[in-house]
Amino acid sequence: MIAQIAMATGFALILIGLYGALTNHNLLRMIVAFTIADTGVNIVIVAVGYMAGRTAPILDAAVPAAEAAQRIIDPVPQALVLTAIVIGLGITALMLAYAYKLYQKKRTLDIGKLTELKW
């Protein structure tokens, strides 16, 4: 049940982030919306690997190596999400750097005023 709740929240965050990125006119706020969608995706992926009644994939006195397969949750989604979070920061920094450069050139962050990109 916990996994379903977390997954629904993750999906909701993706939608909120998408809506925010498409409707806001301020570049910085669009980037904020992107990070929200990013967090949502990560929550969904981790929730897929969760199994009720099992514990984290770390072997210790409570989880001996012999019965690990019956006691731990799926470690693969966690490894993937760990990568995704780190790359997410790299992408955010890149977007912020370009947004700042754009501001330096055009003196505005409002995409309505950046007419070269108008469609």
Partner: peptide, 15 residues
């Protein structure tokens, strides 16, 4: 809560 302490740490420090 989803039993992923590694991811939790990464998200807290980086995110």
């Amino acid at each position: 809560v989803l039993a992923s302490p590694d991811v939790a740490m990464t998200e807290a420090a980086i995110g």
